[in-house]
Each structure stands twice: as structure tokens, then as C-alpha cells.
Design a protein around this nucleic acid. Structure first.
Length: 655
DNA sequence: TCAACAAGCGCC
DNA sequence: GGGCGCTTGTTGA
């Protein structure tokens, strides 16, 4: 086994808003590259970084390139390459990221494990903190004495290599290598996506900014005016900040306000009365006229929620037209304010303009979630509103290209069918039956219309996520009896789903053990469950909300959902990301640019559009074959992917 | 003054 | 009901 371990030290020149070390920022570059080949001494390079790496690959033919949080290093190295050929050599290698490996080995418990943390765990010497202190102060490697940084870098690569060796041994023992290798391929893919970034149309962005900012300003002024004018009761809580949910709660549902008054406490020698400022708490009048449910009250603060759901209930129930108008206005304000601050200003901060391009380079994280899903940050490109803001994301090829989005159809339901092996659910999905409509018919004897189906879907998803009848009713806005009846209908139609839910709950209770923290055992138990892909899930007991016989219980929702979410969007989608990466990386005019849980987005030049869509579709429709080839287990049903194409992310049409 | 927490809300 | 990340206001050291 030959490992080629690497670590880069870089400048920290990007503006604060980007994160000083942003690997795609033009102000940043590598200062030192440290490499180590198994059995040899480490080497330090101060120039021609990618060339040196390529020479090392060529000479040593490593089995793996090893690093910690490798996408960081790889993005720098890819940026430093001078040709596509050089990039291909780096990207042809297999990877072993010790941070990702640690995350998988610990059942997603070690999130963002640092090299220091791992060094301690694996019994290795940890480094002097002087260099880390400089980094913490925003001083880049170019400004640090190389006498100081070189030993630091050498120790890093040595520890990284040693950790990788121990992890490989461990992963082999636990039979997890298939999963690890698949996940490392996915890491290559997401690194490529981060490298490519998303092209932004600056003019569209500016126009949309003006539009939303205007609406925002108008709405805010009106809302402020109305909230001040408003006062059927003299002691209603005064709104001084329309962004404060606390103030709205006190206005709508009552609370306390501080009232300042003067109190005579005696007399000065000159005969004047001596006063003291006194602050008294006064109860304020609840203007909404709606009695809040206990469920709306925060457990920790006792505050009554004024989220959108509660506001809608007030709008429905209130008899006072002024209240209704005020609350509707608040809902409008909340919406436009979210758009402006999170999406317009938030995205704007991340645009990097260079020569002819304007791009957003977000981060796709592999070590952030409990289920193995990917997450996205800086900015989060997985929660962009489905509204015209998405028009700003366009093809980098301009009029000569299109954005293409592939979506797995009802992925989590299909994966539930696979896990539970429920024959009816497998048949429904395979035959293309709409499970929501079928369940509705089972319950009511007829098929639903479109609006009814849309409402009814919430019940299906709620159940898959593990909700009980109470929460189901609350969330879907139906009676407890309807929710209860739905659960019976679902479990009757798909009995193996019921069995599996019961088995998970029963096994957790039966097989859980008390872990030790130091030498004291924890009050709550832990259950480690290993999936067929050998991904480990860790379930812990929580303090019961209800007063049951036991103080701590497992969350049934976690037990029901982790395995489904994990297999679907933690194992299967990343596996396909890795496969697509290998198939598409050599193709001119095709760029992998983003993934949102069950979807994969490409930027494609028009001259290769048709062939690319045909190829990707055919690959994704063979997901079951890749699954069996990767994990040695047949998938109980075929997965299907849809495809949408368009000039921008908002205007995509199904093809 | 700053960091942590809470509320709220966007996506799958 | 599950999983995230970002923005704003609040709170408390």
C-alpha cells in the first residue's frame, strides 16, 4: 500500500466575508505544499505545487492521495494547475480523506474532526500551537517564518499518514471499505462542483435586488406605521422593532413591559423632593383575541410563538379587521425580509467577479450531518427559495448553454420500499402508481383532486418521517381521528413498513447499552445500528417530554427516518455523484455544479446537450446496477430520475 | 462588547 | 414527524 499524503499552507488574503482562507478566492494561493510518500521522508515545496504533486504521482503510483479535509487542498491544487491534463491526473487518483473516514468510522459522530483531535485519539504527538495562533489572528503562511511553519507542516503530513493507515485497518475490520471508497469518490465530485461554482448573471441580480429592496422598504414603512398607530388598548405592547418576534408575541398574546416612574424617597436639604427611578413590570393587553395553545409556547422561554403558522391562525380566527390587516402585513414583511437579507444580500456577499465571470463558490460538506447527507454552506445552495431569485443562476456558456437538473423521483419512498421490502409499496412505485392517491382512495373510496392530493401528501411524508397521530394531525391540519385513520390505512396497505417500524423500535429498546463517559456510565442508553451498506447510525435516548415510566427514551422519529434518509441521500446519491464524476470529467462542455440531496445539477454547452442528457439519464436509471456493483446487494426496485433544462435555475422545464 | 442561544424560515 | 444553514434579536457573562 502506497500513500501519497499532502497538506497545503496558504495565504489568508480573502476578505472576511468570504472566509479568509477561501480556496477559490483570487487573492489566495498556496505558500507551502507538504507531501509524504509511504516509507519516505516528507518533502516541502514552495513553488510549482501542482507540478510537484504530479511528479510524485507519476513516480510513486500511489494507491491513495491522503489528506484531511481534502477538498480544501484539492481546490487550491486544481486552481494552481496550468492545463486540463494536469487536472485530470490529480482527479484520476483515489482519495482518502481522514476527516471523512473518521466521520464514517464513528457513525457520523465525529463531525469536522480536526487533525489535532484525531492525533490525540490515535496516540500521535500533537503540534505546537504557535502557528495555529498566527492563523487564528488571520496571519497567512506567507507572513510566518518558514523556520516555524515547516516543522509544523512536516508533523501534519506525518500524522495524517499515520492516521490514514490506522483508519484503513479499522475500516477493513468493520467491513466498511466499499462505503468508504464510494464516499471518497463522491468527495471528488463535490470538490469538482465547488471548483466549477455557479455562474451568476450580475444584471439580473442587480435588477432583482432593486425590485425586492423597494418592496421591502415599502412594506416595512407601512408595517411600522400600522404597528405604532395600532392601539385598541392603551396598555398594548409597543412595537419598536418589527423584526422582533418577542415584541410581536407580547403585543398579540400579552406579556410584560417595563414602565418607568418616579417615586418620592425623601427630601433634599434645600426642600426639594428627592425622587428615585422605579421600574415596574406591567402586564400588557393581548390584542389578538386568540387564546394561544400550550403547544405554541416555547419549552425553554415560555414565549408564545408568532411564527407563520400561528399568524395564519390569528388571521383566520380574529374578529377584528385591524388585527387581521396588521398580521397579514407582518406575514408579507417577514417573507420579503427573508428574501432580501438571506437570499439577496446573503448571496451577494459570496459573488466572486473575475474577468468575464461572476460566480458563487459554495461549500459542500461531507462531515456535517448525523445521517450522512451532504450539507451546503457559505452560501447554503441547498435552500435557495423556489422563486425568481433562482433566475440569477445561469449557464456559464451564456446563450450557448443550459442548466440541467436531474432529480430522483420519490427517492425516499423508494428507499423505504427497499429497506422494508414491502411488496405492495415496491409494486406501487414500480408500476408508477401514485401512492398518495391510492392511499386516499383506500381511506375515502375515491381518488383525490389536485388540491386534496397536495394536502394529503403531507400525511404520507409525515408518517415516513416518523410522526405519530398527534403531530400528523397538527402538521396536516386535520383531526386526530383522520390522522389515526391514515396511519391505519398506510400500515394496512404497506404492512412491512409497519413491521419494520416496530422492529426498529423494539431492537433499540432491547439492544441498547449504557456507554461510559470516563468511568461513569451515562444516564441514557445508546444503540449503534449498522445498515446493509455498513453505515453506522448512533441513536441516543432523550429525556422524555411526557411523564412515562422511564426517564429516557429513544426518538421513534429518528429510528424511522435516519436509515431511510441515510441510505437515500447519504449513500445512494453520493455513490451516483462518484459514478457521474468519472463518466463526465473528460467531457468538454459539461460541468458538474451542484447537488441538492436528491438532485444533481449540470451546466452544459448546447452542442453536447442532447447527448449529455441521454447519457446521464441512462446512468441514473441504472442506479440499481451500480448499487449492487458497489455494495454487493441488489436493490429491491429500480430508481428513476427526471430531468429539467433551462436558461436559468428558475425557469427549468421537464423534458 | 461579544458569544451563545432562540426564533424563525428557506430547502429536500 | 426527519435532516440542514443563515439572519436577526435577545440574553448574560
Amino acid at each position: 500500500m502506497t500513500l501519497l499524503t499532502l497538506d497545503v499552507e496558504t495565504t489568508l488574503n480573502a476578505p472576511e466575508a468570504f472566509g479568509l482562507a477561501h480556496p477559490m478566492h483570487p487573492f489566495n494561493s498556496i505558500v507551502f505544499l507538504g507531501t509524504k510518500v509511504s516509507g519516505k521522508d516528507p518533502l516541502i515545496f514552495t513553488e510549482s505545487f501542482s507540478e510537484h504533486l504530479i511528479v510524485a504521482i507519476d513516480l510513486n503510483k500511489p494507491d491513495f492521495i491522503v489528506g484531511s479535509n481534502m477538498s480544501f487542498d484539492l481546490l487550491y491544487l486544481l486552481r494552481h494547475t496550468k492545463s486540463l491534463e494536469q487536472r485530470k491526473i490529480i482527479q484520476s487518483q483515489r482519495l482518502w480523506d481522514i476527516q471523512l473516514a473518521e466521520y464514517l468510522l464513528t457513525g457520523q459522530q465525529a463531525k469536522w474532526a480536526s487533525l489535532d483531535e484525531m492525533s490525540i485519539k490515535y496516540g500521535l504527538p500533537i503540534k505546537d500551537s504557535k502557528v495555529s495562533d498566527y492563523f487564528a489572528q488571520g496571519i497567512g503562511s506567507d507572513k510566518i517564518d518558514s523556520e516555524l511553519i515547516i516543522p509544523y507542516l512536516i508533523q501534519d503530513v506525518c500524522n495524517t499518514e499515520a492516521i490514514a493507515m490506522l483508519q484503513m485497518e479499522s475500516a477493513t475490520k468493520s467491513n466498511q471499505l466499499d462505503l468508504f471508497l464510494s464516499q471518497m469518490e463522491a468527495l471528488h465530485c463535490t470538490t469538482e462542483m465547488m471548483f466549477n461554482g455557479l455562474e451568476v448573471d450580475i444584471q439580473t441580480f442587480k435588477d432583482y435586488t432593486v425590485e425586492v429592496a423597494t418592496t421591502y422598504a415599502d412594506t416595512k414603512v407601512t408595517l411600522e406605521k400600522r404597528s405604532v398607530e395600532f392601539g385598541p388598548a392603551a396598555n398594548a405592547y409597543p412595537i419598536t422593532d418589527v423584526d422582533s418576534s418577542l415584541q410581536w408575541s407580547k403585543l398579540l398574546f400579552g406579556g410584560t413591559k417595563k414602565v418607568e416612574s418616579k417615586e418620592a424617597v425623601g427630601m433634599f436639604k434645600n426642600g426639594k423632593v428627592k425622587y428615585k427611578k422605579v421600574i415596574t413590570l406591567v402586564n400588557t393587553f393581548p390584542v389578538s383575541g386568540v387564546i394561544p395553545l400550550d403547544a405554541w409556547k416555547s419549552e425553554k422561554t415560555g414565549k408564545v410563538s408568532v411564527d407563520d403558522k400561528v399568524l395564519s391562525i390569528i388571521v383566520d380566527k380574529t374578529k377584528d379587521p385591524d388585527i387581521k390587516e396588521l398580521v397579514l402585513l407582518l406575514q408579507q414583511y417577514r417573507e420579503v425580509s427573508k428574501q432580501l437579507s438571506t437570499y439577496i444580500q446573503g448571496l451577494g456577499k459570496h459573488i466572486i467577479e473575475e474577468q468575464e465571470t461572476a460566480r458563487i463558490y459554495g461549500r459542500l460538506n461531507h462531515v456535517a450531518t448525523s445521517t450522512g447527507r451532504l450539507s451546503s454552506a457559505s452560501p447554503n445552495l441547498q435552500n435557495i427559495s423556489n422563486n425568481p431569485i433562482k433566475k440569477v443562476f445561469v449557464s456559464r456558456y451564456g446563450d450557448d448553454g443550459q442548466l440541467v437538473e436531474f432529480d430522483f423521483s420519490q427517492l425516499e419512498v423508494a428507499v423505504l420500499a427497499h429497506i422494508t421490502k414491502d411488496t405492495r409499496l415496491i409494486k406501487d412505485i414500480t408500476d408508477g402508481n401514485d401512492i398518495h392517491s391510492e392511499l386516499y382512495r383506500n381511506m375515502y373510496g375515491k381518488y383525490p383532486d389536485d388540491a386534496t392530493r397536495k394536502w394529503f401528501k403531507r400525511l404520507t411524508f409525515g408518517l415516513i418521517y416518523g410522526a405519530g397521530a398527534n403531530t400528523l394531525a397538527e402538521n396536516a391540519g386535520c383531526s386526530y381521528d383522520v390522522a389515526k385513520n391514515f396511519i391505519i390505512t398506510f400500515y394496512t396497505r404497506y404492512p412491512s413498513v409497519k413491521d419494520w417500524h416496530n422492529i426498529m423500535a423494539g431492537s433499540a429498546d432491547k439492544l441498547a447499552t449504557y456507554d461510559y463517559v470516563g468511568d461513569i456510565h451515562k444516564l441514557s442508553r445508546t444503540w449503534r445500528w449498522i445498515s446493509e451498506t455498513k453505515r453506522v447510525y448512533v441513536f441516543s435516548e432523550y429525556k422524555s417530554t411526557y411523564s412515562t415510566s422511564r426517564d429516557y427514551t429513544f426518538s421513534p422519529t429518528e429510528l424511522k427516518n435516519y436509515p431511510v434518509q441515510g441510505l437515500a441521500t447519504g449513500d445512494i446519491v453520493p455513490m451516483m455523484l462518484g459514478i457521474l464524476f468519472r463518466k463526465l470529467i473528460d467531457k468538454p462542455g459539461v460541468k458538474l455544479i451542484n447537488t441538492v440531496h436528491d438532485s444533481i445539477m449540470l451546466d452544459v454547452r448546447n452542442d453536447v446537450l442532447t447527448e449529455t442528457i441521454t447519457e446521464v439519464r441512462s446512468i441514473l436509471n441504472k442506479t440499481h446496477e451500480f448499487y449492487e456493483a458497489t455494495f454487493g446487494i441488489p436493490l429491491a426496485l429500480k430508481l428513476n430520475a427526471g430531468c429539467k433544462v433551462g436558461k436559468n435555475w428558475f425557469e427549468l422545464t421537464e423534458i
